[in-house]
Structure formats: structure tokens, C-alpha cells
Nucleic acid binder design. Structure first.
Lengths: 165, 165
DNA sequence: TACATTATGTTATACTATAACAACCGTTTT
DNA sequence: AAAACGGTTGTTATAGTATAACATAATGTA
């Protein structure tokens, strides 16, 4: 994890996270000649509202409120696009989606998921990837995609016994 | 991964896998004073039919054919029990279940999942776990549960371009 | 403009998992 | 043996997650 990423520090300027994520997405889409349509931008913004992964169906009411169609395919399509562009990740063990702080380059990502406050932070785990690559390589297995999802307690919740909001 | 585990070798004596898994489960249940009922044993056997993870709903027809009730709760209950006992693992990214070759002791498990032949082999990834523990520790995160699911191509499928059955 | 391409709207449905309560069964207690 | 109990299974219903398929609209391009 790079130094400027907020980890589990609960007092970071989250508005800044959101702004930056949106701005990065706009720039990258322009470079890549992809269209960050209003729906897609809204979904990205919603996913970034906090560091707690959101389920697809949790996004629908907000879409409806913004005047868009709010049937499931709408949000799944937006999520699919955002994943392809690397702007969000899906967390399989939660059936939920979370913003990616480093969309500029594709990367193997892992997550630390706190069962106390439900926040998930991305782990830039070079060492984990190396170990995995070695173990897989010994079996002749060629890695294409990695999912690393770790559940536990973040520093805040360890102190408060998991009651942190 | 220990030496006696079949990895992606497709010619291992799979009947032996099944027998051994069932026998181990019987012994462990006796030791633990748990009941390996006919339904539970059947589900375990079905999950072990091959090394491809099976979805819960794929098990239902076989349960029906064996004369049991075949409504979803039946199979989910059996799977829940088998997971608690460590006899099977759930693979979140596939919504599927696979037999565990080392149920005698709880362990952090990872999986290599081949997108060619759909086989999944368990990775006894001590090194991966260590790396993860270190990375998490740096953020003050306390690990309770790990999911490591790696998708790629097994040795067989690398040769045949992923067409291996 | 005409055409192709991409995105969105809409309806329906598939797939995955659990809630809730009744019936059954083996064990222990009376 | 009867009653009480805990655990397992049967049964119905429903919650939660995701996609198929086709129609319409918007955008980019010749």
C-alpha cells in the first residue's frame, strides 16, 4: 500500500477520495476513448460514498432518485463497465463492489475486510502476489486473476470490540 | 501442498480420493461426536466426485435420485455441516463447493482454479499466508479468515489451449 | 443524411441462499 | 414406558444476486 492511501484511518478527508476518484476516471476515460456517461459516473460516485463495499441492489434507489431507470441491468451494466476500466472491484465473498484507489494501471488486488465496521481497504500486496506466483508456478499453474479477500478486525474495531461504525 | 496430494495430475486414482475423504470424515465425526448422517455423507461423496467445484443446486438431482428430499435447504444444511467440520470448502468466486483433502486440522486454504477444465486444487500456501499476515499486520489488521482464489490455466490446459475436459 | 455502434429502457427469468415452522428420531430423564 | 429434550430432516415460501433478450434512444462516422 502506498503512503498516500488512506488505510483504516477513519479521519481522512473522504470528500477528497471521491473527488479524486471521479477526476481520475474522467481523465482515464478520455485517454481511453471510453464514455463515462452520467449513469456510470453516478454509480462510481455512489460506490465511493464510503469505504464499505456496496451491493448492486443498494445502488438502485439512488439511481431512481436521480431520475434514471432503476432496474437491475442498469446498475450491473454500469458496474461491469467500471470494473473493465479498473475503477471498481467486486468482492466475491460479499457480493459487493468497492472503489479502486489505483485505476490507472491494472493490478492484482487484495482486500482487508473488517467485520466490525464493514470497511474494506485494498492491499497492494506485492509480497502476497509473489508468494502466490511461486506456489502456483511449482504446480505449473499460470495465474491470470487473483482474488484475495481477508476478513478480520481493523485497528479501530479491535479496540472497541467490533462495534465501530 | 504436501507430496501425496494430487495436484493437476489428471491420472491419479480418484476413487481413492473419494474413499479416503469419506473414511476420514467418518473417523473425525466419531472423534468429534458429530453425526455423519446419510444425507451428509452422500453430499460429501457427491462433492468429491471430481475435482471440479459443484454448485449447491447441482447436487439436488442426485439427492432426489437417492430418495431424499431435494429442496434447497437440505443440501445447504449438509454443506453447512460439512464446512463446519472442514470437509468441504466454499469457493466464493464460483458459488461452488469442493472437497477438502486435509480436514483433520483447520487451515487457511487457497485455491487454484483452472478456467479450462474447471478443476480446483487446494494450495497449502504457507508462504502466501505469511505474506498476507505481514501486510495486514503493518496496517494493524487482525486476520480471522482468508479467501484466496486464483484463476488461470493448469498445466494440462496450457498445452491444449484450455480445451481440456 | 444514412449508417453503424454503443448505451439505455424494459420485461422476464435464472441462479443462489435462507427464513420459518412442522414432523421425526435418538437420547436422557422421570 | 412416558415425557421431555436436542438435533436432523421435510416442506413451503421468499429473499437476494445476476443475466437474457429485445426494444428504443443516443452517439459517432462515412
Amino acid at each position: 500500500m502506498s503512503q498516500d492511501d488512506p488505510g483504516f484511518e477513519s479521519d481522512h478527508d473522504h470528500q477528497h477520495c471521491i473527488e479524486q476518484a471521479l477526476e481520475t476516471a474522467r481523465v482515464l476515460c478520455r485517454d481511453r476513448k471510453q464514455r463515462l456517461t452520467p449513469i456510470r459516473e453516478l454509480v462510481l460516485k455512489l460506490v465511493w460514498q464510503n469505504h464499505q463495499p456496496l451491493g448492486a441492489y443498494e445502488l438502485l434507489p439512488a439511481l431512481a432518485k436521480a431520475g434514471f431507470n432503476s432496474a437491475p441491468p442498469t446498475v450491473y451494466r454500469a458496474l461491469e463497465f467500471l470494473q473493465e476500466q479498473g475503477f471498481v472491484h467486486r468482492i466475491a465473498s460479499l457480493n459487493a463492489y468497492v472503489g479502486c484507489p489505483h485505476p490507472e494501471r491494472p493490478h492484482r488486488s487484495g482486500f482487508l475486510i473488517c467485520r466490525g465496521c464493514q470497511r474494506a481497504v485494498e492491499l497492494n500486496a506485492g509480497a502476497v502476489h509473489s508468494a502466490l506466483k511461486t506456489s502456483a508456478g511449482e504446480l505449473g499453474f499460470e495465474i491470470e486473476q487473483e482474488m484475495v479477500e481477508v476478513v478480520g478486525l481493523c485497528p479501530d474495531c479491535r479496540m472497541t470490540g467490533g462495534a465501530h461504525a
